[in-house]
Simulated assay, not measured.
Amino acid sequence: MSSASSTPPWDVHRLPRAEGSVFLITGGNAGIGYFVAEQLSTTGATVVLGSRDPAKAEAALASIRSRVPDAHVRAVRLDLADLRSLGTAAESLAVERLDAVVHNAGVALDDPPRRETGDGHELMFGTNHLGHFALTARLMPLLSAAPAARIVTVGSFAAKSERLDLDDLQSRRDYRAKRTYGRSKLAQMYFGLELDRRLRALGSATASVVVHPGGALDSLTPSRPPVHVRTTTARLRAAPAALLVQGKHAGAWPAVRAVLDPAVRGGQLWGPRLFGLRGTPRREAVWSHLTDAAAAARLWDASRDLTGVDPGDLRG
């Protein structure tokens, strides 16, 4: 990779070419993941959408192809809540190498009741964090086969005010949906940073980068029917919010830059430029609580025990 000083200014509307590269986007059929996939598809790379729902995946593929006629896009079935299925999902990619994976998929529960995955894990923690932790282990042989792969973990601004309870990762004692969601995203961010530390210690060429989309609202997101339809009423009601936050198309920008920009390095955190809530992507200081390497190591050990795999094992 070239140095930051030798690269031109980053332009979210003029992305560098990436022919021959293969990128996997988890949850690429909707929301921020869809726009990450759409934007990366303009680079000439092969973009694979990981999705639980084949019908939604096909709708997303059709939308991308309608906007990017020469797009190389396809989908694989991926259910992060089913840990035993992830090996099969990785094999279904049917590629010799993977140049980047964007860990974007996730669930958020607005209703109070606590739910569990089929593996018995709290749904948000089990899907958002443990699913991506285990998927990374399954993908590691493909990532290691690329000359300089990127693992991009999409966190959340909601994690900035949260702290992990390492003795209650599954929220069995104290479950509150919004807090549990924020903590699941915080766990993802810890994982992304700890993963890079371990990759560096092993001398790996693969880099792990953490990003967050800032404030990204459906009502400020351009329509992509049938994937997303924004009504005129919703657009007008959301107009004042555009001073502080943005749509999901812009929320995708930090992840896209983390995949493509040669100036991005492992262990970094990227987010929107203005107050961390909106604007073009920039590197920001790693949040103070995310610098707790001891907590990250404890989370890693717990995640390894809960999933039965270790992404730090480069054999996958």
Rank of each mutant, 00 (worst) to 15 (best):
R198N: 01
L49K: 03
R198T: 00
I25N: 02
L269D: 00
Q170F: 12
V286Y: 03
K185G: 09
P8I: 09
A75G: 04
D111Y: 05
I25V: 13
G50H: 05
V256G: 00
P281D: 02
V12L: 05
V209M: 06
G120M: 10
F133T: 00
D165T: 13
F275R: 15
A149I: 02
S3I: 07
E58M: 14
D79E: 15
G31C: 00
S171V: 07
V12I: 10
E38C: 04
K248G: 01
T127Q: 10
F35C: 00
R273S: 13
P112I: 05
S184V: 06
T233P: 01
M140S: 06
S51V: 14
A71H: 10
D305M: 15
P112M: 08
V229H: 15
L86I: 13
A296K: 08
G155A: 14
I32R: 03
R138K: 09
V48E: 07
P147Y: 08
V210L: 02
A242C: 02
S6I: 08
G192E: 02
P254Y: 13
S219K: 11
L244Y: 13
P281Y: 10
L164P: 06
A216V: 03
L236C: 13
L269W: 05
H103A: 06
G279S: 06
G279H: 08
P254C: 06
A241L: 15
A75Q: 10
L193R: 07
T232Y: 15
L109Y: 11
R74A: 12
D53H: 14
H13T: 02
D79C: 14
D99S: 05
P262E: 01
R315I: 07
V209I: 13
D165C: 11
V211I: 12
P222C: 10
R183L: 08
L193V: 08
S161L: 14
R179G: 05
G251M: 01
W300F: 09
A295H: 09
L98G: 01
A62M: 02
Q268K: 05
G87P: 13
L24I: 03
D174L: 08
G276F: 15
A100H: 05
S2A: 04
E91L: 14
H212S: 03
V154Y: 11
R77S: 13
